Computed example of a mutant assay.
Amino acid sequence: MEYVTVNGVDVPALGFGTARMDTDEERRRAVETALDVGYRHLDTAQSYGSEGAVGDALAASDVDREDVFVTTKLSGDNRAYDDVIESTGESLQRLGLDAVDLLLIHSPNDDVPHEETLDAMNELRDDGFVRHLGVSNFSVDQLREAMDLSDAPILTNQVEYHVRERRDELLSLCIEEDVMLTAYSPLDVGDLADDPLLAQIGERVGKSAAQVAIRWLIQQPMVSTIPMSSSPEHIRANFDVFDFELTDDEMEELAEQGGAVDAIRSKLGW
């Protein structure tokens, strides 16, 4: 396993996402498989309906709780101060945990000021129910605002990021400010499995296009990623990305496929 070190915290660079699954049984089996394979970073959310399945899988696993980094997110309806406190307690009950490693604002919500939500999240952190705070789907300006408003560091901004979805300005900010960029949908909901350039590079290293796409992300500084699948075969394949590296030329070629990279080229050493 490789790690992203952010604010002195080592976070597994490859995590397991639990969105877009249909049943509790499907979710539970998928998370159990992920833990068996070696994933030690689990991502869930109040709106996914998967917190209970994650909790059941953790309870059934022989893996030590402290070896697993667990993230959940506040739903759009739970941004007011009291709702943050109450709903996080309910999340912990579903997860069967005393504390969650990372609590995120799932997406910006203009109905409730970010300051109010972050104040409640900071209280939860001070009380030991949440270890770290973060955001999701925030723009560069919104991330800067959250960093200014929160007493605790913002550990991550979780956004869609892959070779066809550029995040150059955001990644540049994350590198400068010691914030992790967590990439969801790293395979563009499966569309990258047939990408010609990814397949061409994969042929050289004996990997699939999907594995190259994941490797491209975790090989970047301050980037983690959380692919999801309910297929045991795909769960294992997505984890099998630590025995090869992409060259600097391949990293840049893939980046240029999605757009200009001038803003971060020097920081990444390309």
Score class of each variant (00 low, 15 high):
residue 95 L to I: 06
residue 95 L to V: 08
residue 95 L to H: 08
residue 99 A to D: 15
residue 101 D to A: 06
residue 101 D to E: 05
residue 101 D to S: 08
residue 101 D to C: 11
residue 102 L to T: 00
residue 104 L to N: 06
residue 105 I to N: 15
residue 106 H to V: 03
residue 106 H to C: 09
residue 106 H to P: 00
residue 107 S to W: 11
residue 107 S to C: 03
residue 107 S to Y: 11
residue 108 P to A: 02
residue 108 P to N: 05
residue 109 N to I: 04
residue 109 N to P: 02
residue 110 D to E: 14
residue 110 D to N: 15
residue 113 P to W: 12
residue 113 P to G: 13
residue 114 H to W: 11
residue 115 E to A: 08
residue 116 E to W: 08
residue 117 T to H: 13
residue 117 T to Y: 13
residue 118 L to K: 14
residue 119 D to F: 03
residue 119 D to S: 10
residue 120 A to Q: 04
residue 120 A to T: 04
residue 121 M to I: 05
residue 121 M to T: 07
residue 123 E to P: 03
residue 123 E to Y: 12
residue 125 R to K: 15
residue 125 R to A: 13
residue 126 D to Q: 13
residue 126 D to F: 11
residue 128 G to M: 09
residue 128 G to E: 12
residue 128 G to F: 06
residue 128 G to L: 14
residue 130 V to I: 05
residue 131 R to Q: 15
residue 131 R to W: 07
residue 132 H to I: 00
residue 133 L to S: 15
residue 134 G to E: 09
residue 136 S to L: 05
residue 136 S to N: 00
residue 136 S to Q: 03
residue 137 N to V: 01
residue 140 V to P: 03
residue 142 Q to A: 12
residue 142 Q to V: 02
residue 142 Q to F: 04
residue 143 L to D: 00
residue 143 L to M: 04
residue 144 R to G: 14
residue 144 R to V: 14
residue 144 R to T: 10
residue 145 E to D: 13
residue 145 E to L: 07
residue 146 A to H: 13
residue 146 A to D: 06
residue 147 M to N: 12
residue 147 M to S: 10
residue 148 D to C: 08
residue 149 L to M: 07
residue 149 L to Y: 07
residue 150 S to C: 15
residue 151 D to H: 08
residue 152 A to S: 14
residue 153 P to G: 13
residue 154 I to L: 05
residue 154 I to P: 03
residue 155 L to C: 12
residue 157 N to Q: 01
residue 157 N to V: 01
residue 157 N to P: 01
residue 159 V to H: 04
residue 161 Y to G: 01
residue 162 H to I: 02
residue 162 H to V: 01
residue 163 V to D: 05
residue 163 V to Q: 04
residue 164 R to H: 11
residue 164 R to C: 04
residue 167 R to K: 06
residue 168 D to Q: 09
residue 168 D to W: 03
residue 170 L to K: 05
residue 170 L to N: 04
residue 170 L to P: 00
residue 171 L to G: 03
residue 172 S to W: 08
residue 172 S to D: 13
residue 174 C to R: 02
residue 174 C to M: 01
residue 175 I to L: 11
residue 175 I to H: 07
residue 175 I to T: 08
residue 177 E to Q: 09
residue 178 D to N: 12
residue 179 V to T: 06
residue 182 T to Y: 09
residue 183 A to C: 04
residue 186 P to E: 07
residue 187 L to P: 02
residue 188 D to Y: 11
residue 191 D to K: 09
residue 192 L to S: 00
residue 193 A to L: 09
residue 194 D to H: 14
residue 195 D to V: 02
residue 195 D to S: 08
residue 196 P to M: 07
residue 196 P to S: 13
residue 197 L to M: 07
residue 197 L to R: 07
residue 197 L to W: 12
residue 198 L to C: 01
residue 198 L to P: 01
residue 198 L to V: 00
residue 199 A to P: 05
residue 199 A to E: 15
residue 200 Q to C: 09
residue 201 I to W: 05
residue 201 I to P: 00
residue 201 I to H: 02
